[in-house]
Write a protein that binds this DNA or RNA. Structure first.
Lengths: 110, 110
DNA sequence: AAATATACATAATTTTCTTATGCATAAGTA
DNA sequence: TACTTATGCATAAGAAAATTATGTATATTT
């Protein structure tokens, strides 16, 4: 994912946020999108991504739809209603996290 | 620590940064300092803190000095030379992490 | 007297990730 | 043609970092 351990716990937020912008995405597409947006800084590994997608689906935050393109399998994921709500929470948590960390590491600016 | 999972992986950064500002601190003091700076948002649990301090010491990033105050034990930790260097790295990683996450969740602003 | 605060510690478990492996098809290259 | 890379999914073993629970002990407040 990255040499930095800070990304631990951020994967769900990333997945959910991408899905608010792209309506439906499949796993491999997510890895490529993240890689390009972050200019290679962040590479989501398959061993992290697929279990995360399965968990989000099991929690009712994502719906899945299987498709066959060029004779290859794709699993398209999209946000459920609850998924959309949870995304708002996650983004709010991220904003809070960043604010809190900045108050800790840059106390003079806060 | 917090209901948000995003703090996973941030504890070392927090400890090291606090020690650049306070010269020496003991464990309980760190938990109280974090609580007050973050206005209660972040509560470092002992089960996370003490093993983390031991690990940082084992890695040579912290030195420890035992004291007895009011008949109670205190273990004061301070940064070693390597600890100071590593703190700079950690803070740089945090800045990068925040930048990357903002590019993911707020692509229009980047 | 009892509860809370101060101060350390560790063990069992859970969560989340890395690393390794596996299967399969398509496309590009030597 | 053979080999590598890209596309696309999946899971298992292990590591890392936390939570939760528990333990010990002294000081202070109610």
């Amino acid at each position: 994912m990255s040499n930095s351990k800070l990304y631990k716990g951020s994967l769900n937020t990333i997945i959910l946020k991408l899905l608010t912008e792209h309506d439906k995405m499949y796993g491999y597409e997510i890895t490529q999108k993240v890689k390009s947006i972050t200019k290679g800084e962040l590479n989501i590994t398959e061993g992290a991504l697929y279990p995360a997608l399965h968990k989000l689906e099991a929690e009712g935050l994502l719906d899945v739809e299987v498709a066959k393109v060029d004779n290859r399998l794709r699993k398209y994921y999209k946000l459920t209603e609850n998924g959309t709500k949870e995304t708002i929470n996650k983004l709010s948590e991220l904003a809070d996290y960043i604010k809190t960390m900045q108050s800790l590491v840059n106390p003079k600016l806060v």
